[in-house]
Design a protein around this nucleic acid. Structure first.
Lengths: 245, 245
DNA sequence: TCTTGTGAAAGGCTTCACAGCT
DNA sequence: AGCTGTGAAGCCTTTCACAAGA
């Protein structure tokens, strides 16, 4: 639901002769957890911790140890029985798997409140992502410099994507124009989109879309908050601590 | 994975005598889709469309029609065979299920780039969510008015949560302090948290946490972008259009 | 004839439990 | 003795396919 879908031939169970690229298939759910593991692993690396066990790493990332081991086993697994996983190797391995050994230029379309906050957010600038373009149709924003990048007109979209070989686009546009912008991004060659606008996007198969939707998240929380109100009495040990990430 | 956990009695199929609170259990995956359905339904309502079929609604929300019918059936289902679902009733029904018939006061802790963007975001102000407090420790921000609410010191956190009976908190704080702020929110009575900081939070059972993590999303996209690069040739009909929301 | 509601099948993800290696 | 890697079971979610109803 959350991710863009890749069209797949129906039927045809258990790879027939047509199955050329076997690509070890890391499950989507695993991919989504790798960044969380990586964050903890990097901090262990900084502290100079040489190895970590699945129980330790699992507990600090809020997952079940068996799940962690299963996840890492999809990457070809670098652990040693009786010892644990070597932190350095694992950082390198997970980084490579996630494609973080190269730099990813990105474009941000829509430089309103949210677009500006995204541009200023340091978290990704440091880690392999680089802003190749900030695009907005508002003439008052043109040339304004945000976090070291100046805003360009949306007309430049295709030029920027092509000149910098951008494959990732962030959409912080008003809902009404988001599909139109998406179509242009895709036509220009973008294959991965992070959409902040509350719109269901339609894209060609092979283009990946991830959705970040604030009001959706709030509505989901409201659902649970309401449950608490009327349903009241939570079953289950009231003392248990839970991790969520 | 994404949500806080609610303990549930295992086994016991089809409510036995011990089944006191029957609460029809809407699956988490369904709850996460309801806001998407609701958005489309509201726009159909505005246009005055009286009924909608599962095929229509499913196609504009990017899901399978069978899935949509299953989802709505968890809510007790208001459809008519041969006709479809009455838009008005469904809007009311889904809204009620999501807890959107009441107003939810929220607090935002951390009024940096992101916190300000969140405060200014109109999408939730309109729909049942109201900012009860903006909290930040930076003395330069104190009293500054953002989107009609003035920033208060973090010391006021407990006071705000109690006086306005706030049960939802948004965290846009620096990573280092996020767990500490969370502990205070929970102690003050908050039961639902939307966390934007890249940290795995630990909370007591019964508190719901949802995570929105920009760099994680980008890393997931990088994974797929990398696949495209080297794996290259996508299988599957290259013409197919896909919806993602 | 059209569309819902749902058994049943299929698929994917998580967790248990333990064999196997260090 | 300790911890990984993984069969196998269990659970959750999605999808098919069709009976039932308007």
């Amino acid at each position: 639901m959350q991710d863009g879908t890749t069209a797949r031939a129906p039927g045809d169970p258990l790879g027939s002769a047509a199955d050329i690229s076997v690509r070890s298939v890391v499950p989507e759910a695993t991919v989504a957890r790798l960044p969380v593991y990586l964050r903890t692993l990097r901090s262990l690396e900084e502290q100079g911790t040489p190895t970590v066990s699945s129980v330790e790493l699992a507990s600090s990332t809020g997952v079940n140890p068996a799940q962690l081991r299963r996840d890492l086993s999809y990457l070809g697994s670098y652990g040693t029985r009786g010892v644990g996983y070597p932190v350095d190797d694992l950082v390198a391995h997970v980084s490579r798997e996630l494609g973080l050994t190269q730099d990813w230029p990105i474009v941000i379309v829509g430089v309103g409140n949210l677009g500006q906050a995204l541009a200023k957010y340091g978290g990704f600038r440091s880690r392999g992502f680089r802003i190749a373009g900030l695009l907005d149709p508002d003439p008052r924003l043109l040339g304004v410099s945000i976090a070291g990048t100046s805003v360009r007109p949306v007309e430049d979209l295709e030029a920027v994507v092509e000149s910098d070989a951008v494959s990732i686009g962030l959409l912080a546009t008003p809902a009404e124009v988001t599909q139109a912008v998406t179509d242009r991004l895709v036509a220009a060659g973008i294959t991965s989109i992070l959409n902040f606008a509350p719109v269901v996007l339609t894209v060609p198969a092979g283009v990946h879309v991830r959705q970040v939707d604030l009001s959706r998240e709030l509505q989901i929380l409201a659902f649970h908050a309401q449950r608490r109100q009327d349903g009241s009495a939570e079953l289950g040990a009231p003392e248990a601590q839970v991790r969520a990430g």
